[in-house]
Structure formats: C-alpha cells, structure tokens
Design a protein around this nucleic acid. Structure first.
Lengths: 352, 352
DNA sequence: CACTAGCACTTCAGTGATTAGAGTGCTAAA
DNA sequence: TTTAGCACTCTAATCACTGAAGTGCTAGTG
C-alpha cells in the first residue's frame, strides 16, 4: 500500500511544515518551534507523537537524540511527489529571466547566458549541455570546393543547427567527384539518420563499386566530421559559489568532493545521462534526482533537477540545477522550466 | 641602494632556508627548527638576530609574537628575483608533460589538454586563454558562395589558425559581387591588419564609389566576422581542487572569494591583461605577480605566473598558473615554460 | 479515546580556566 | 662576534561546566 494514502492529513501538514521550514532555515525542527511558527490547533506533544510515527515511516530522522527532526531522503521524495505545490515565479524573477531573450544570435551565447541566469535565479549551480550533435539527425551535408585539395564541409542538422569546417585532403580532388561524394554521403545519411550511425555504416559496410576509389577520402572526411562534432560538445556550468554559501557546505570536507568532481566535464555529461535513465517527474518532463538517487557518492547530499530544451520541437540537450538536497524544489523546478522554455523560444527563433 | 647588495651571505642563506621550508611545510619557521633542519654552522641565537634584521628589512614577518617567521610578499619577490635557483623537472614530470604532444589535431583540444596537464603537474590552478583572434593579423579572407543568399566566410590568420562560418544575407547576391567584395575586404585588411582594425575602418571611413551599393551587405558581413571571432574567445581553467587542498584555503572564508571570482571569465581575461602590464621576469618571458601585485583583493594571498605561447613565432595567447603565494616558484616556472614550449611545438605542427 | 501538561533525561554548543609547546628578545659570558 | 640561558608571550588543545533545545514517557483531562 502506498504511503500517500496511509498518512493522515495532520501528518501531511506536519511533514510539509517541517520540510518547508528546513528548506528555508536549514536547521532541525523541534515540536515546540514548529507549533509556535505555524499556529497549529494541536499541541507540541501531539506533534511529537506524530513526528515519532513519521520517523518510523522513514520520512524524518533525528541527527541525534534531543535534536529536532530533519527530512530524510525518502521524506524529500514524498514531498516532491505528493506534497509540494506549484511555485509561481515573482514578477522580479520573471523579469530577470526574460534577459535571456535579449542575447546575441549565437547558440553558445544563449546556452551560456541561460546557465548564468538560471544559476542566479535559483542561487544554485546551473548546468547546460550543448546539443548532442553526433546523435542529432542530419538534414543535409554539403561539400564545397575551396582549393584543389581542400573543401568546406557544411552540415545542417534537422534542428536547424549548422556547422562548418575546412577539410584538407592528402591528395587533390575534382569538383565533380565532390558532387558524387556529396550525393553518396547524403543517401547514406538518410539511412543512418545521425553522424554516429553514418560513422558506423561507413566503417563497417563495404562501399559500392563506383565509390570504392574514393574510400580513403571518404574515411578522412567522415572522421573529420566526427571529430568536429565531438569538438563542439561542451558543458556550461555556473554558480558554484552559491552552493558554497549554504551552511551544509561550510566545511571543506563537504565542499571539496563536489568542486573536485565538477571539474571533470565527462562526469557532468554522465550526470545528465543517468538522469534520463530515471523516470521523469509527472510534472512536465522534469527529471529529479534526490540525494543519492544519483550514482555519485560525492553528491550524496545534493539533488539534481533537469529538463530538456528543444530546437524546433526536437530535443537537443538538457539544462539542470544542482543544489543541496535541502533545496526549494518547487521554486527550482518552476524557474528551471521557465528558463528552459525561454531557451526553446530563443533558440527556435534563431533557426526558423 | 638595492637590498640585494646589502644582505650578507649568511642572511641570504637563512632567508632562502626559511622560504624554501615555508613553501614545503606551510608553517612559520623558528630559529631552533631551522638550525636543526639545515645543520647551519651558527646557533639558533644567531639565527634569531639575523631574522630580526631580515624582519626590519621587510622580508619576513611574524604572525604574532612567539610565532616563527613567515616570508613577506617582499621576501618572496626577493627570493624569486635573486635567490631561487633553476628547477630541473624530474624524469616523471617530463614524461607526464609529454602527453600533450599526443593530443588530437584541434586547437581547442590542445589548449584544454595543456591546461589539464599543467594543473596536474603543478598541483595548482592552470589557466589558458584562447588566441585573441580579433587582434591577430589576418592573412586572407575568402567568401565562398553557398546559395544565392548565403555564403561561407573563411578567415585565415597569419598564425595559421583558420575559421569558417556561414553568413546569411537579407537579400540575394551574385557570385561576381562576392568576388569584388572579397578583393575589397582583403585590401582593407592589409591596411588595418587585424579584425578590430577592419571593423573600425569600415564603420568610420566612407566607402569607395564602386563599393557603396553593397554597404549594408558589407556591414552585415563584417559584424558577423566580428561576432564570430568574439565567440571563439574562451578561457580554460583547471585544478581548482588542488588549491583547496592547501592548508591556507581550508576555511571557506579564504576559499570562497577565489572560487567566486574565478567563475567570472572576464575577470580571468583581465588577469592575463594586467599581467602583461607588469615587466616580465628576466628569465625568458615569464610574468610573475606575487601576492597583491595583482590588482584583485580576492587574490591577495595568491600568486600568478604566466607566459605566452606561440603559433609560428607569433604570440597568440597566454597560459598561466594560479597558486598560493607560498608556491614553489622555481618549479612552477620551469613546468610552465615546459608546457608552453610543448604547446608551441604542437600548435606549430598543426599549422605548418 | 485522543490529546496535552509536566517532568526527567539527553545531547550539543559555547564558555572559561588551565596547560604544554614553540618561539622570542635580552643579557651576560666565552 | 657569537652563543647559552632565562624570563616572557602567545597559541592551540584539553577539560569541566552550563544553558538551551529537544525528546519520550506517564498521568491526567475533555
């Protein structure tokens, strides 16, 4: 039987009060304080009894006898799933987040700005990953001759993103051959849809007769395409200092592992990946890893909330917030969604 | 009269001993400890007298009466200028730093890898700035038609770096007009040498008659070039966690301002700028800001050592190390120079 | 029967007081 | 000029003590 139905209204009120107070004050809550602060119709003694039962259910715990109660990880999860209400951003917050729409026309600038805005608004760490280009479906690929042994490679993704790079060949090549290759690569792309797919296809399948002569050039080209898209994969991170202001990270022992692990970009990417493996929050596509629901020991008292952003209705990357487990979930989720949808709008306008 | 000539050999020995010991142990040095550790031919009492005089000269100070001596900022400066010897990297360090040469063919990858290697080798924060493209002299600019209202813009810098981007026009344009514009822009570039110069020229000077019709297109193009090069300006930073391991940054009060300020990329760029305003160390082009010689209150107990790296003998950007004032200067400088020269080699090979 | 007032008990965080250790400056002697 | 000796200083660590906040349990009340 689900806990949701087993808890009396009073228990839910008390649990909600404890979690909300703990989120804002960061200190264990005692029965007396709670009673005074919320003007409950029942006495501290009653609260004590209820709290004892909530603790039996695993929703609260005491750091030590004679301390107040603190929400457990399960408590936060219950709160996020059933108790917390929707947060409505204030006028100032809305206004602040609008800034995003005024930025320049470059994808990089938009992602970086979104990350900064989100970090500032939530007073936590914000992280954005660039579109995962290698798996993005490609719309068209163009090879434009530049000199006799170099060309411009122009890739246009379905999402509208477009990247160019110059490829140099070890041998000279005629324009009509480039035309042939362009046609060939585009048909191959249609069947493999993404660069990862194309890469595998070319590397494993045997080439058709008319193309075989150009095998080495094709390989050169494809590996250049692949390298190029890999080079563009990046992660924007902002707001580390906000996390360090929280009382739970005042000691280096707590703060160090986090700063340490966040220095590794590959790790951050994996955080997004692991996030997608969990099931998203019912509330609109938001993934929420509470405490050690994420796989990393170093982040066991952090939570990570993330959501995808889109370019022309195609999911391309994710943006998220990393904060203490004791974060204001409803607020963070609301602001995150707002920034993500702002991004989607701004990016969409860019590629329309 | 310069201090260098006023100090007796014995004083120099004692000062050197104190600074070296302090660098490795991080604790104030007393006369007795010093005598025991270095087997001096004179007694602790003599050391005490000498230390008192060194303190009068402002080279040492006591955190409090009854504590040992600690090098002052002036002390470090004297040490770096006159006392420290050259450091010879160990075989392991050399080997470790060789890794750099095995990286991929992308500038980004090389800079990022160099930063990581340097941070690891020095156990401090390493910072690298990308080439300051807007001020880099341009060798040639090519406009390659793509469709009737878009083109590929290909910029080749003197250093060998080359960047492409697609520019869309609001109106359609003929291939022969592009040819004319290519010619025009390249002659303008010859006279202004860098993109910053070109940008100013175009914006302020009146255009020649034959070109005037295309004024709006030229402006569009130039601002796109400018935006593109600005977009590529970046800073790589690695090794924050190393700094946090040092005893002087164990408390959040010390660590916070540093982490906070390093989050701002513009600040880091300015650090490189301010560094170049100081005069370089006699020893091969290394700039060294000790303690609050840098302009930032937040870094008053850090030092910053930096050196330029080159592509084909042209200075393009800088790489540096940020560590506690109590850093092993000779070692850091040696490793920094080594990594920088490795970069120069690797980058040179890339653009030969 | 559910609730609450009262009380004994627990734990932590902060406050002095005390002490050991490391270092200094000064003086007098070698 | 150098050094041994000594009185003095300051810090950091330890310990005992106290007050605040909180709990669980019991007995009484509507």
């Amino acid at each position: 039987m689900n806990l949701e139905y087993r808890l009396s209204d009073r228990k839910r009120d008390i649990l909600t009060a404890i979690i909300k107070d703990y989120i804002t004050h960061g200190e264990p809550l005692g029965s007396k304080t709670l009673a005074k602060r919320h003007g409950f119709t029942f006495s501290p003694a009653t609260i004590r009894n209820e709290m004892a039962e909530l603790e039996e259910n695993g929703l609260l715990y005491q750091p030590h006898t004679s301390a107040g109660r603190v929400p457990s990880q399960k408590g936060y999860r219950f709160f996020v799933d059933y108790l917390m209400g929707a947060y409505v951003p204030t006028r100032e917050e809305m206004h602040f987040m609008q800034r995003l729409q005024q930025t320049s026309r470059a994808v990089e600038a938009i992602l970086s700005q979104a990350t900064r805005v989100l970090a500032e608004a939530t007073q936590s760490i914000a992280i954005t990953e660039t579109p995962y280009l290698r798996q993005n479906p490609v719309k068209e690929l163009r090879l434009i001759p530049l000199s006799e042994n170099s060309m411009v490679l122009d890739i246009e993704y379905n999402s509208g993103i477009r990247r160019q790079s110059v490829v140099n060949f070890s041998q000279s090549i005629y324009a009509d051959v480039l035309g042939l290759l362009t046609y060939y690569l585009n048909t191959q792309l249609n069947q493999s849809s993404s660069l990862v797919g194309l890469f595998h296809r070319i590397a494993t399948c045997s080439l058709e007769r008319e193309i075989q002569t150009y095998r080495s050039i094709i390989l050169e080209m494809v590996s250049e395409i692949y390298a190029q898209s890999q080079r563009d994969e990046k992660v924007y991170l902002n707001g580390t200092s906000h996390l360090l202001r929280e009382p739970e990270f005042q000691s280096m022992e707590q703060a160090f592992p986090i700063i340490n692990i966040l220095e590794d970009e590959r790790f951050v990417r994996r955080l997004f990946d692991s996030c997608q493996e969990s099931s998203p929050q019912q509330s609109h596509n938001v993934y929420c890893l509470i405490g050690n629901e994420n796989a990393y020991e170093e982040l066991h008292n952090c939570s990570f909330v993330a959501t995808p952003y889109f370019i022309n209705t195609k999911a391309t990357g994710m943006i998220g917030v990393l904060g203490p487990t004791r974060m204001d979930y409803s607020k963070v989720i609301a602001l995150l969604q707002n920034v993500a949808s702002n991004m989607t709008t701004t990016l969409g306008r860019l590629f329309s």
